[in-house]
Amino acid sequence: MDSFLHSEFTLSESGFLFDHGTGLTYTLNETGRFIFQKIQDGSHANNLVELVTSEFEVAEDIARKDVDDFFRQLKEARIIH
């Protein structure tokens, strides 16, 4: 699969995330869930920011900063490469 996700994930509507590989569970907030969904769909960091700004009420620079931070967190949690 051309996904940079580490393993299989199941994401619920409410933001509950299950990592099939490690068995660990996470909670994502609304924005987080939206982004993760996009990742699952195959989007990359670059156009994610665009997607976020068109979906949510937020300034671009803030969105960029936050998305970067979010990616860092995901990397740390070994969810993405």
Binding site: T25, L28, N29, E30, G32, F34, E57, D66, L74, I79
Partner: peptide, 13 residues
């Protein structure tokens, strides 16, 4: 309309 934004977070249980 756009949705209300809050910083995306992921919290491990």
């Amino acid at each position: 309309e756009k949705r209300h934004y809050s910083k995306p977070t992921i919290i491990r249980h």
